[in-house]
């Protein structure tokens, strides 16, 4: 449900979960408005929060076209009908999606303790390890980043320590660097009926993992290609921007 009412409801729940608002205060604000939500200080507060989320670029609003059927209501009837209710929906922006991806990734990997050495950032300290790869004999086509020490040592071993030192082609050695490659990843997301079988939602957790994985790949491995595929009776490519709003 992407209606504004659903958003207000979710906001209220989030505020209460984070102890920013308690049940008592909610009742108080409603009571000030004769128990009605519409026009209450609570509605005003939630609207202000939605405005802030929009200003900061996390969400956008769009107005859906009112159904044709409703527009035709009262056709040929000169009397003025009641104004139709506005059908405003919200959408998560790319910034919002990026933020959710980051948070989901942090939650998935955030419970790391200190175990073996890896690449995940932790609050702990460790000694640095910088692997210096051995140099190799120069071959045509190699980048000429000469390892001068090994080159001279090779010449000395062959010719003995004398001046002038005669360098042969086979003496040349070059530094080796880590070779980094890019890779392509396709994430396949199952949205078949079994994902919501027996009323249990297995799709949302899977979607969160996909979102976190997408965030990890996009931020840690620039140059990688990432595509999402949604499969059910058939399969189709899913744009990353649509991931958050995809449902079974």
């Amino acid at each position: 449900d992407t209606s504004l009412d659903a958003l207000r409801q979710a906001l209220l729940q989030a505020l209460m979960d984070q102890d920013l608002l308690d049940e008592h205060r909610v009742q108080e604000m409603l009571a000030e408005n004769e128990g009605k939500f519409k026009g209450s200080a609570l509605e005003e507060m939630l609207n202000q929060l939605i405005e802030r989320l929009i200003e900061e670029g996390y969400l956008t609003l769009r107005e859906e076209q009112v159904r044709q059927q409703q527009q035709q209501r009262g056709n040929g009837n000169p009397e003025i009908s009641e104004p139709l209710p506005r059908n405003v929906k919200f959408e998560v922006t790319e910034k919002g999606l990026d933020f959710l991806g980051y948070k989901t990734l942090r939650n998935l990997l955030g419970s790391l303790g200190k175990s073996s050495f890896g690449r995940h950032d932790t609050p702990q300290l460790s000694t640095g390890v910088e692997a210096a790869a051995a140099s190799k004999a120069y071959e045509f086509g190699d980048t000429i980043n000469l390892d001068v020490n090994t080159t001279l040592l090779s010449a000395i071993q062959r010719e003995g320590l004398k001046m002038p030192l005669n360098l042969e082609y086979s003496d040349l050695h070059v530094h080796q660097c880590d070779y980094q490659s890019s890779c392509a990843t396709v994430v396949m997301l199952d949205c078949s009926h079994s994902m919501i079988l027996y009323g249990e939602d297995r799709f949302t957790p899977a979607k969160k993992v996909a979102l976190a994985l997408a965030h990890l790949i996009r931020t840690q491995y620039p140059g990688d290609a990432l595509k999402l595929v949604l499969f059910h009776d058939s399969a189709e490519e899913l744009p990353l921007a649509k991931l958050a709003t995809t449902q079974v």
Binding site: A14, L15, M45, L53, L100, K103, A244
Partner: peptide
Amino acid sequence: DVSSINLGDLMEGLSDSLLS
């Protein structure tokens, strides 16, 4: 006070609703 609420924390609290 609405302006004192951290939007990042709020978005995190909203994530379950926004993603489901």
